[in-house]
């Protein structure tokens, strides 16, 4: 199951969704809005995605995870729009008969998501500036004032 949503993620419901009597292990990963990055204070994050392709890529990752590991269930949700401090922007739940598969698949899924799914975050800093996050691009090319 994959979902892109503008609403807060019900992480308990997501975990419950992958649990079953066959699953001896269930792993839940949450990516959460962090207040400080390299000493700079974040007020909130804004997420944007390319909806058709992001859904397609997430579905493809889920399918590949099922092919590579002996999983019972897998569910991924990513937030869009404003995500406040402490809220989960992404949640991945994986279950398997034994823990190795769930741990490995969960780590692989979040690593791949961050590399290839077309979703972008914008940092809204406490000093009033905001900045799209693009790994590999120099910060000077990205800085903008919030009122732009």
């Amino acid at each position: 199951m994959i979902e892109l949503t503008h609403s807060p993620i019900d992480t308990s419901a997501l975990l419950a969704q992958v649990q079953s009597n066959q699953a001896g292990a269930a792993v839940l990963f949450l990516g959460v809005t962090r207040e400080f990055t390299d000493g700079r204070q974040t007020v909130a994050l804004d997420y944007q995605c390319y909806p058709e392709m992001a859904s397609r890529k997430l579905e493809s990752l889920e399918k590949t995870a099922h092919a590579q590991w002996d999983l019972i269930a897998c569910a991924m949700i990513h937030r869009l729009g404003r995500v406040e401090l402490g809220e989960a922007s992404v949640a991945i739940a994986v279950s398997s008969a034994h823990r190795e598969a769930a741990f490995e698949a969960g780590k692989w899924l979040i690593d791949q998501l961050k590399q290839e799914v077309p979703i972008w975050k914008k940092e809204n800093w406490a000093d009033g500036t905001s900045e799209w996050v693009h790994p590999g691009l120099a910060p000077a090319e990205k800085e903008v004032r919030q009122d732009d």
Binding site: M53, H78, L113, P118, K121, W132
Partner: peptide, 12 residues
């Protein structure tokens, strides 16, 4: 074709 420009992604 549906074409999109994809700057380095930063989901998660």
């Amino acid at each position: 074709s549906e074409v999109a420009c994809i700057p380095p992604v930063s989901g998660g």
